[in-house]
């Protein structure tokens, strides 16, 4: 299936969970926040929340800023 991850198209297996996506993208152990279709997916739901075709996913972190 196709999702959009941080604005770019990405292929992933059907029913991929948020936790699996984070793992695949290299962010499994990092402090990040995840939004799917503009709704926050809390960390406690990362292993159970399955992505669907066409989902818009955002993964964000903290960087320097003023």
């Amino acid at each position: 299936m196709h999702i959009t991850l941080n604005g770019s198209p990405r292929d992933c297996a059907t029913a991929t969970t948020v936790a699996q996506l984070l793992q695949d993208a290299g962010y499994g152990a990092r402090r990040v926040a995840v939004e799917v279709n503009r709704e926050i997916v809390p960390r406690s739901l990362h292993t159970s929340h399955e992505l669907a075709d066409g989902d818009q996913v955002e993964i964000v972190h903290a960087i320097g800023g003023g």
């Binding site: 991850l5 941080n6 604005g7 770019s8 964000v60 903290a62 960087i63 320097g64």
Partner: peptide, 20 residues
């Protein structure tokens, strides 16, 4: 201390040090 929230750079080395 202030910080900004931004997209992670997918495809870049995620093990780089983090502000936090």
């Amino acid at each position: 201390v202030t910080l900004a929230i931004r997209r992670v750079n997918i495809g870049q080395d995620a093990s780089q040090p983090n502000l936090l």
